[in-house]
């Protein structure tokens, strides 16, 4: 069941059941602040029940830092800064959900081949449902997509394309792209009893190169960074131990900025505050402007945690980007971690 909060928004309900019986249910909207905005995400694993994972999931900022310029372009912010692109049957090969004339969301079911394979047993073939919307700002156009897999994974992604930005600098037109997502957790329907842990596995050269697992509770609002050599990751879990794991497997590059402090970090964790919607250029009245101000040392105890995750890519112009940019992608994965007691498809194999 969708919460009253979701029902109050103008959104379209998406409810998809896979052949296995797994199900995703959510509300999808397109707005002038985030572009795509998903609320009330519930996952139903086969043999389980429908349980809420996230209260909200949406892009929190997209930054283009054109090399050769000292300022950055933020693509999300005040109304009109970016515009939704109305989808049609040429740009949505799945199901078109019309919220208004210009506000459309597309959902499409995709195969997930080789979901699992063991020896001579037949491979388990799976599926996922993609929910996406498209926005534009000047010559840039991007697709914000959330893939919800049959086995409970959540994979947000942003693909940037459009006509090449006009180049007015002497640096070959290259640019740094950073995308950020906001994830407001509400595991099993109540975010106030969710907590965040950081996992590290540092190498101990004095102990035979062993890696002891170190789990640190994150109790106050804070920034965090990927530590590749320590295999750092983060888990959000509730009082029953049910959780999801954010594994920064796809974070190879790190944003470097001389002006934006928050953007230098891969992750920010804040206590839920409804007015804090964008990582920067936040527009809500009587609210701070960006993560640097949101993170004020507040305790996370008894508060629903919100994770803000950022990834960076480099746009390197080549002939393949002329006249239309080959899509530049960022994506990451939220993995069920003790959400079910075993593989939800065990009985089906």
């Amino acid at each position: 069941m969708l919460s009253p909060h979701a029902a109050a928004q103008e959104c379209t309900e998406i409810n998809h059941t896979f052949a296995s019986g797994a199900n995703w249910q959510l509300c999808a909207n397109v707005n002038s602040e985030h572009g795509l905005s998903l609320t009330d995400l519930h996952y139903f694993a086969p043999g389980d029940s429908s349980r809420q994972v996230l209260e909200a999931l949406h892009p929190a900022q997209i930054i283009m830092m054109h090399h050769g310029k000292s300022n950055v372009d933020m693509l999300l912010g005040k109304p009109g800064l970016h515009k939704p692109v109305a989808l049609n049957n040429k740009t949505c090969e799945g199901t078109l959900h019309t919220i208004s004339d210009t506000h459309t969301v597309c959902s499409i079911v995709r195969p997930l081949p080789l979901l699992a394979k063991y020896s001579s047993r037949r491979a388990l073939q799976g599926e996922a449902i993609d929910v996406f919307a498209v926005s534009e700002h000047e010559s840039l156009i991007w697709r914000s997509n959330v893939r919800l897999s049959e086995d409970g994974r959540i994979i947000p992604s942003i693909s940037l394309s459009g006509l090449r930005p006009s180049i007015t600098t002497s640096t070959d037109g290259s640019a740094t792209l950073q995308t950020s997502w906001r994830m407001a957790f509400a595991l099993n329907g109540d975010g106030s009893n969710d907590r965040v842990e950081q996992f590290d596995f540092p190498l101990n050269r004095n102990a035979g190169n062993r890696r002891a697992m170190e789990i640190k509770a994150i109790n106050t609002e804070s920034f965090a960074s990927v530590q590749r050599d320590d295999f750092r990751g983060w888990r959000v879990l509730d009082e029953d131990g049910d959780g999801y794991y954010l594994d920064p497997q796809n974070s190879g590059y790190q944003m470097v900025s001389s002006t934006l402090n928050w953007a230098k970090f891969d992750l920010a964790i804040t206590a839920y505050n409804a007015c804090e919607q964008l990582a920067d250029n936040n527009q809500a009245d009587a609210c701070d402007n960006n993560l640097d101000a949101f993170i004020s040392g507040e305790s996370l105890e008894g508060r629903a945690p919100v994770l803000w995750y950022s990834q960076s890519r480099i746009f390197r112009p080549r002939t393949e980007d002329n006249p239309v940019m080959s899509s530049l992608h960022t994506s990451f994965e939220l993995l069920p971690f003790e959400w079910t007691a075993s593989s939800p498809f065990e009985a089906l194999e």
């Binding site: 979901l115 699992a116 063991y118 388990l124 086995d151 409970g152 996992f199 697992m213 990751g233 794991y245 993995l335 069920p336 971690f337 003790e338 959400w339 079910t340 007691a341 075993s342 593989s343 939800p344 498809f345 065990e346 194999e349």
Partner: peptide, 11 residues
């Protein structure tokens, strides 16, 4: 990092 969802077969 092993998780319960890896039982008995991993996705």
């Amino acid at each position: 990092v092993p998780r319960s969802e890896d039982q008995r077969h991993m996705h």
